[in-house]
């Protein structure tokens, strides 16, 4: 079922546990945040992950990004495995996989212009002449629509502009895989649409693989080729976006999808009938 390929990311039986305290003289108790998740992301593919708060989707994203080592299971990233977190090889691998976080204002240095921050990402991985680094950072900013704003400090940009800057900083490395962890959740709806369209456009242009984590089902549906549903640390169901949203197999998925607001009351009645068999 999972293709034995070197083109893409293959996760097998990922487990993550966190200690939640211990009783006096007792064993340390663990909470299983992710409990055996297996999936793959093909080159150029977008995998959406949906689930309620606390279902383990962010933890899954952090393991896939290599920021956290899994407690169990394995990840094959284009045939390679991740080096131990913090090692020199791990730092080199950061070039291949990047994360776009939820709150752009918290993840940029408030004292550096966004151009300088994009350039820093680039020069960390390549030895470049100053002018060439400047040009490439500028080209990346232009690609995300911030051509004239590079000299700004983060607080002089709006939330949407700042998220574009963060995307530019991640993509200037030309990664193969980008994990968007609630990347648009903090933005208002019209800006969300702009960022989603930007991601769609860059995905084509740069042949990116994406893992798109969100609790916003309609956004995930719009952007993903395939979608996985998480609940209580388990990946309940994973399938083609269209199939999953129209005919969810798992009972939990059905209930989760029923939470999407319907366009009209009629649609809602029909869907409820389909989901629950009878009107509540």
């Amino acid at each position: 079922m999972i293709p034995a390929t070197t083109e893409g990311l293959v996760a097998t039986g990922l487990v993550q546990t966190y200690p939640v305290g211990r009783r006096l003289f007792g064993p340390v108790e663990h909470f299983r945040a992710v409990d055996g998740a297996s999936f793959h992301i093909a080159e150029g593919e977008t995998l959406g992950i949906v689930g309620e708060s606390g279902s383990g989707k962010s933890t899954l994203g952090r393991m896939v990004a290599g920021i956290e080592a899994p407690a169990g299971g394995s990840i094959s990233f284009w045939g390679e495995s991740y080096a131990p977190v913090g090692s020199p090889q791990w730092r080199r691998q950061r070039r291949q996989v990047q994360v776009v976080f939820q709150n752009p204002a918290a993840v940029v240095d408030p004292r550096w212009t966004i151009h300088a921050q994009v350039r820093e990402a680039l020069t960390t991985h390549e030895t470049l002449a100053r002018s060439e680094a400047d040009d490439r950072a500028q080209a990346m900013l232009t690609m995300v629509g911030l051509a004239t704003l590079g000299k700004r400090l983060p607080h002089q940009l709006s939330g949407g502009q700042l998220q574009r800057a963060v995307i530019a900083r991640a993509l200037v490395l030309r990664p193969r895989l980008v994990i968007c962890d609630e990347a648009v959740s903090a933005l208002d709806v019209s800006v969300q649409a702009q960022i989603i369209n930007l991601l769609l456009e860059l995905r084509e242009k740069l042949k990116l693989s994406l893992m798109f984590i969100s609790h916003d089902l309609s956004v995930v549906r719009h952007i993903s080729h395939r979608v996985g549903v998480m609940h209580a640390g388990k990946l309940l169901e994973i399938g083609d976006s269209r199939t999953l949203f129209e005919a969810p197999q798992h009972d939990y998925s059905r209930r989760l999808l029923a939470a999407i607001p319907a366009d009209t009351p009629r649609q809602r009645r029909e869907r409820d009938l389909r989901t629950f068999g009878a009107l509540p």
Partner: peptide, 12 residues
């Protein structure tokens, strides 16, 4: 969850 963490994930 701040910028120091985020900048380290860039490989710095």
């Amino acid at each position: 969850q701040g910028y120091a963490f985020a900048i380290r994930t860039l490989g710095v």
